[in-house]
């Protein structure tokens, strides 16, 4: 390896996030925010009603709706604000995204499996729905964190 003095003048010293990496923060913030809001709603409701009898359907429906709509809207706004020159996606972005999705499959399938088991043993709807619901959100959070680790540290292959 040849070292040449004065290289730093054409190198970027500070770390600058790319378009897709910044976008991953949107996914993470929305997932964490909506999930915490839902947990808080259920916590407040169970102060007055036994947990398994809490009216969870409305907060859960809105949590899902808001997470989908907020993610889409924020990505559109972010894309507009970023301008056309900054929205490029390349092979590394796709590899990192795919790996994040793959890692996110584990909590997703775990939630589904848990929901299935709870249904098989005639457990309350509250636990079945919430096991699957938690699987979705934990999956999204784990997937986003995995992608951010991929961008920051790399996986070797991506």
């Amino acid at each position: 390896m040849l070292y040449i003095w004065g290289m730093s003048k054409f190198d970027y010293i500070k770390y600058e996030m790319g378009y897709k990496e910044r976008g991953t923060y949107i996914d993470l913030i929305v997932a964490v925010g909506v999930f915490l809001k839902y947990v808080w709603d259920i916590f407040r409701l169970q102060l007055e009603t036994p947990l398994t009898e809490v009216a969870f359907r409305t907060p859960m429906f809105y949590a899902i709706l808001i997470s989908v709509v907020a993610t889409i809207v924020l990505h559109i706004v972010y894309s507009i604000l970023s301008g056309s020159n900054d929205t490029q996606e390349d092979q590394r972005d796709r590899q990192i995204s795919r790996f994040g999705d793959w890692v996110g499959l584990f909590p997703l399938s775990s939630g589904a499996m848990l929901g299935l088991l709870l249904a098989m043993f005639d457990q309350p709807h509250f636990w079945i729905a919430n096991a699957i619901f938690a699987g979705f959100f934990v999956s999204s959070i784990v997937s986003s964190i995995t992608r951010l680790v991929g961008y920051r540290r790399g996986f070797g292959f991506a």
Partner: peptide, 16 residues
């Protein structure tokens, strides 16, 4: 590719 990818390759964080 993006500039971030070039940086990652240079720093050995990514194999193209």
């Amino acid at each position: 590719v993006t500039r971030q990818t070039v940086i990652a390759i240079e720093q050995g964080r990514y194999s193209p």
